[in-house]
């Protein structure tokens, strides 16, 4: 973006990204061996096993790859108990750990043309569209706290962090989103 275009963007006044704190999201941490949990995950969420760093959705439910033996299952909170029961049933003979973590996290939506730039101000991650796209979950550092983000079906980012630092994360994100456009990313 040229100097002139950048100044125009500032003058228009509206922040290029918007941060919304989302209501509680049902979440389950599941640990186990991929070969052993795949069927249980399908039964609980309808989703197949995501690839390394992948996140997949089936309607309101989803599964994110967190580490080689850990997944984050997403669903409306009222479905958590049922999902846990399904997992327990499917995995009764497999060594695993499944536990609700809905209350442990806070979740945000970062939308708008400046969303990538907002995150790039506070996360040491290559956020260019060619490198980070829908279907991937990135666990990283949001300023000074751990966080993870992905791109939702609506094209906006979702970011989760620990509950105790929710206000910090929101303040950091809003601060980052309020910056004038940098003009670094092609669409930016």
């Amino acid at each position: 973006m040229s100097d002139a275009a950048r100044v125009t963007a500032v003058a228009s006044g509206a922040p290029a990204a918007q941060v919304d704190c989302l209501p509680i999201q049902g979440m389950i941490t599941l640990r186990g061996q991929p070969t052993e949990v795949a069927e249980a995950i399908r039964a609980a969420t309808g989703c197949g096993l995501p690839e390394q760093r992948g996140i997949v959705f089936e309607g309101e439910r989803g599964v994110a790859w967190m580490s080689p033996d850990e997944w984050l299952l997403l669903m409306p909170q009222e479905m958590v108990s049922e999902c846990l029961a399904t997992l327990a049933g499917e995995l009764s003979s497999s060594h695993h750990l499944a536990v609700e973590v809905s209350d442990a996290r806070a979740m945000f939506r970062i939308s708008g043309t400046g969303a990538r730039e907002a995150l790039a101000r506070v996360c040491p991650v290559d956020l260019s569209p060619a490198t980070f796209a829908a279907g991937e979950i990135r666990r990283t550092r949001l300023a000074q706290v751990p966080a993870a983000f992905w791109i939702g079906a609506d094209g906006a980012f979702r970011l989760v962090c620990f509950r105790s630092v929710a206000r910090y994360a929101q303040d950091v994100l809003e601060n980052a989103a309020s910056g004038a456009p940098v003009g670094f990313f092609p669409e930016g």
């Binding site: 390394q52 580490s67 080689p68 990135r138 550092r141």
Partner: peptide, 12 residues
Amino acid sequence: PYCGIRCDETEL
């Protein structure tokens, strides 16, 4: 080697 991310030192 587990998640394939080229980690910034500040993530480690």
